[in-house]
């Protein structure tokens, strides 16, 4: 039971990570689409400025919790995905620094460097997380010893790329919705415009991904065995439709919330499909790492459960307060603010 609880919590951390960092990755990658001059670029930077760091901590915690609750999964996952993970890491490093450094110096060359760090550093994690998770859904070629039989290009298979594009465009849309609520003027107009177009692409990619999953993975086995679980993809579908409805009503905050719900549901849809595995092997079912054979001791799981139960509600409370306190849309005056990025 404790192991199952930890599976759900583990999924929650990834889901919240994608839900939160998803918008600033998607917005960062498409910044040039919404911002045409320096002031507008700074508006975009500042729309994400107070949040990107706290969002990224969900990734650190997801990694830390994988380490704590399922150390063997952590070890095999991180070492077999060495190259893509380090690419994500470098990207996150460069984009993180870009926030702090970019506007400190008034030199167009300097600013251009950091703009590119943000764009590239946002694009690749958005794509690669999708590629990585799609491959996990499908199974990764590793053996009982945890040896990886493949390379970076093994992961760039059609299904992996379908997952990557789905994540990428979902984050694009999620980011466009965020820019719609958090900026004003031209950037907001452009983002609103983009959001409705991106929604159609997301829909198409979602349909492709769902159908492709039927052929490329065994995700649906759990759903066939327990049809009640279909409620998860159903929530995803309804929430995605709600995004469109709210967009057409120009109710941007609600559209963003609906997009959040979709991301959480999509994450759980995939994880629900691999349960009780955490990191399935495509070579040998005996090598697959699941919530039992890769778990920490019951003692550690209990202690960690208490820690999480005590801390996470507080984290959610103060992060919510933080979002509410700094929810105001950013306008052009931001560049006169001494603290602004």
């Amino acid at each position: 039971m404790l192991n199952i609880t930890w599976f759900i919590l583990w999924g929650l951390l990834w889901a919240v990570y994608f839900m939160l960092d998803g918008f600033d990755l998607g917005l960062g990658a498409l910044m040039p689409l919404y911002a045409k001059n320096d002031t507008e670029k700074r508006m975009i930077f500042n729309a994400m400025g107070p949040f990107w760091d706290g969002n990224e901590v969900w990734l650190i915690t997801a990694g830390g919790v994988t380490f704590a609750a399922f150390p063997k999964t952590y070890a095999v996952m991180f070492s077999t995905l060495y190259t893509p993970l380090l690419m994500i890491l470098f990207a996150l490093i460069l984009r993180g620094v870009a926030f702090e450094f970019r506007s400190k110096i008034e030199n167009p060359g300097w600013r251009k460097i950091w703009d590119w760090c943000l764009i590239v550093g946002s694009f690749f994690p958005a794509l690669l997380f999708g590629v990585a998770f799609a491959n996990i859904f499908k199974g990764i070629p590793f053996d009982v010893q945890g040896m990886f039989h493949g390379n970076l290009f093994t992961l760039l298979n059609p299904y992996g790329l379908a997952g990557g594009l789905f994540f990428l465009f979902f984050f694009f849309m999620h980011g466009a919705l965020w820019a719609s609520v958090k900026t004003t003027g031209m950037p907001a107009e452009r983002a609103k415009n983009a959001a409705s177009k991106l929604w159609i692409i997301v829909l198409i990619l979602a349909v492709i991904f769902l159908i492709y999953s039927k052929f490329a993975t065994s995700l649906y086995n759990n759903y066939m065995a327990h049809p009640i679980m279909f409620i998860i993809p159903l929530i995803a579908v309804i929430a995605l439709i709600m995004v469109r409805i709210f967009i057409s009503k120009s109710d941007w905050w609600k559209a963003w919330f609906a997009s959040c719900v979709t991301i959480v549901a999509v994450t759980y849809f995939g994880l629900g499909g691999i349960f009780p595995n955490l990191y399935p092997s495509s070579l040998d079912p005996a090598a697959s790492l699941n919530i039992y054979n890769s778990a920490s001791t019951q003692g550690t799981l209990k202690i960690m459960f208490v820690v999480v139960l005590l801390c996470i509600p507080f984290v959610i409370a103060y992060q919510t307060w933080h979002y509410i306190t700094l929810r105001h849309p950013v306008n052009e005056d931001i560049i006169h603010d001494d603290e602004a990025y």
């Binding site: 380490f67 801390c311 984290v315």
Partner: peptide, 14 residues
Amino acid sequence: GDIFGSLLAIEATL
């Protein structure tokens, strides 16, 4: 991981 991992995870959450 049973010991070290939990300390890192606590560091992150706390």
